[in-house]
Design a protein around this nucleic acid. Structure first.
Length: 230
DNA sequence: CACCAGGCAAGTA
DNA sequence: TACTTGCATGGT
């Protein structure tokens, strides 16, 4: 068998793990580094992770800008001014529940770590994840965003974009359990926070620009020909 | 006007 | 375990 025909065979029979790796390289080639998560501090990333639940980032960004202009984007200050939170975050949507969630997180973060991300970072990643999941309003995705983007722990984030892109392009069931999906990425990629960070950011980039929810296929998808598609 | 957005928790079967 | 529903503003 010649080298080229072997390449073709491999391409057609590409395993799911190979697709995971191939898509990463193709996305990076197409879009380049994404410099995620947008935010000036670990705490800002934590707040953003809660506010962006089922909400467009643009609206969250405006909220964060507003809070900064008020000069209270810190754990202790926000806790002190907690009664102002519903109005401050109103434009991020679901502001009643998100106020409760943010305040619950602030109490946890200040109560357990004095609002110090560096101190929090020292805790064992697995134990910390369980701890985060115990805070009201912190589910798997939000916990993993905090672990990866605020604390640089090697944890792969599974979000709606990831599910959408992989269910269309790599034979994933959209509703597969979160932990199973995450395990596939952990088993396939090097255990490196920078890789997980970049990959998830690239998936969001693809999802926002080309892989819309109600389109059966990515329109003019930059990777449609190079990543074995279904 | 309808539909969607970087989820989560509570309720139901 | 696996679904369904409420939460709410802002953009297309």
């Amino acid at each position: 068998m010649t080298t080229s025909s072997m390449t073709e065979t491999v391409k057609v029979q590409r395993s799911f793990r190979e697709k995971i790796r191939a898509l990463y390289h193709e996305l990076y080639r197409a879009f380049g580094p994404q410099n995620w998560w947008p935010g000036d501090s670990p705490f800002e990333i934590m707040v953003g992770a809660i506010l962006t639940q089922n909400t467009r980032w643009e609206n969250v960004h405006r909220t964060l800008t507003d809070i900064k202009q008020e000069g209270i984007l810190s754990p202790h200050n926000l806790l002190r001014h907690r009664r102002r939170i519903p109005r401050l975050i109103r434009r991020s949507g679901f502001y009643h529940v998100k106020s409760r969630r943010l305040i619950a997180y602030l109490k946890y973060f200040v109560g357990s770590y004095n609002g110090d991300a560096a101190l929090m970072q020292q805790k064992d990643c697995t134990a910390l994840r369980k701890e985060l999941l115990g805070v009201e309003g912190i589910g798997r995705e939000t916990a993993d965003c905090i672990l990866l983007y605020a604390l640089s722990h090697p944890v792969f984030v599974i979000d709606a974009y990831t599910r959408r892109i992989f269910s269309r392009h790599a034979f994933f069931a959209y509703n597969a359990p979160y932990d199973e999906l995450q395990q596939s990425f952990h088993d396939t990629l090097p255990k490196d926070a920078k890789v997980y960070n970049e990959y998830h950011a690239l998936l969001v980039r693809l999802g926002k620009g080309y892989c819309k929810k109600n389109e059966p296929r990515c329109a003019v998808c930059p990777v449609r020909d190079t990543v074995a598609l279904s």
